[in-house]
């Protein structure tokens, strides 16, 4: 099976905030492969480089080192072709607040040069009754679902979700998981970042854990638990992905 996404030794450097002449690597040589129809989760503490990695794959951010291929297209060479076949939900993105949901979806359709059925898309994310509402009047969960509707206007091959459930209540979170599962069942490859270990365990076929711009582990949730979960004396293996996460990235507070 050939991977639909290949990241090879990706590097992104930013100038240091307190000394502009020096740089630090926000993403420091990250390689992974994602296969078609997979749900692939990237986990990591704040500042680990998850979002930056996604942005390089999406053609939103320059790639300073290494290379990325999405559906066989070199992202650095042809970001526009990549953008045509991916759908992206950004962390906390806002929309033109003077347009209603239907108008916004039609706008996004136009950006992909597609005629879309906005109501059908809203139906998919259970927002039909909010068709004439402005984004500012949506709840957190509704906003996230609307973001996903916007990401679906071009019927993408790959859907990128950046912390899709952060800040949602359990009901909204569950609903979003169902939506992601549905889309995946329909054949969509999904790449998501999250802080929520339960989410990673529930949704993802494979998980990559990032820290300090590097990939520190990558496997199925079960294998990761087998490999890294702390082993209590005289007891069968227990633990969850959160234990794995903390074992790999340490207990020190970030931010």
């Amino acid at each position: 099976m050939t991977p639909i996404i290949r990241a090879i030794d990706l590097v992104k450097r930013y100038p240091l905030p307190d000394d502009k002449s020096r740089t630090f690597a926000a993403v420091d040589g990250v390689s992974f492969e994602i296969f078609e129809r997979e749900i692939y989760g990237i986990l990591g503490p704040n500042g680990a480089g998850k979002t930056t990695t996604l942005e390089m794959l999406e053609g939103l951010n320059d790639i300073d080192g290494g290379s990325a291929f999405v559906d066989g297209i070199d992202v650095a060479k042809d970001p526009y072709s990549v953008k045509k076949i991916i759908g992206v939900q950004l962390q906390e993105s806002e929309y033109f607040d003077k347009l209603n949901l239907i108008e916004l979806l039609d706008l996004f359709g136009a950006l992909y040069r597609r005629d879309i059925d906005a109501m059908e898309l809203l139906g998919k994310v259970h927002l039909t009754e909010k068709a004439k509402a402005r984004p500012a009047n949506l709840s957190g969960g509704q906003k996230q679902r609307f973001s996903i509707a916007c990401a679906l206007v071009n019927a993408p091959k790959i859907l990128f979700l950046d912390e899709p459930t952060t800040g949602l209540d359990p009901q909204a979170k569950r609903r979003l998981w169902d939506l992601v599962t549905e889309l995946n069942d329909a054949g969509m490859t999904i790449v998501l970042t999250t802080h929520n270990m339960e989410e990673a365990e529930f949704l993802c076929g494979r998980i990559a854990i990032m820290d300090h711009g590097r990939l520190v582990a990558e496997d199925t949730p079960q294998s990761l638990i087998m490999k890294h979960a702390p082993e209590p004396p005289e007891a069968p293996l227990h633990g969850n992905i959160e234990d794995v996460f903390l074992a790999l990235t340490g207990h020190a507070l970030r931010d």
Binding site: G59, K83, L90, S93, Y95, F108, L111
Partner: peptide, 14 residues
């Protein structure tokens, strides 16, 4: 500031 530009340019908008 609102991230709208970023959202627009994730699409193939020139």
């Amino acid at each position: 500031r609102k991230g709208i530009l970023k959202r627009l340019f994730v699409t193939p908008l020139m």
